[in-house]
Amino acid sequence: MNPNTKRHTNRLQFAALLRGIIVTAFLAIAGLSYVYLKNQLHVSGLQRRNLEQELNELISENNVMEAQISNLTSRTALQRRLDEGFIKLVPITGQAVVRLHPQENGRWASDTRSVGNQIQTISHEPAARR
């Protein structure tokens, strides 16, 4: 074989090829990552927007409910229901009010009940007819 022929043969330069592949792969990964992250950002943005929308809707619903509760429990609404007979209330007359005045000498403190005092039990069963 002519030595010149051997000289012109294109030999595979693995190191350069590897370097090229690595650079290309790096660039490809970087590019794809960029696109992926950009898409992720977009998806996250959409999720955020949807969550914000849901949250706002919930806040609005809550506010509407609060407003409705205020309306339904307002004094005027209750008075109307009272007038219509939906609520049964009996006015307390003046005689029915008993005012208790704790004595200054501490009657309750000194008159401690001994264990021997008779305890009256209260039954919640309906009383038998006599």
Binding site: N56, S60, T76
Partner: peptide
């Protein structure tokens, strides 16, 4: 868009 109206639960009171 968010908006609101004023409500007066007690009406004329």
């Amino acid at each position: 868009e968010p908006d609101s109206t004023r409500m007066y639960p007690n009406g004329s009171l």
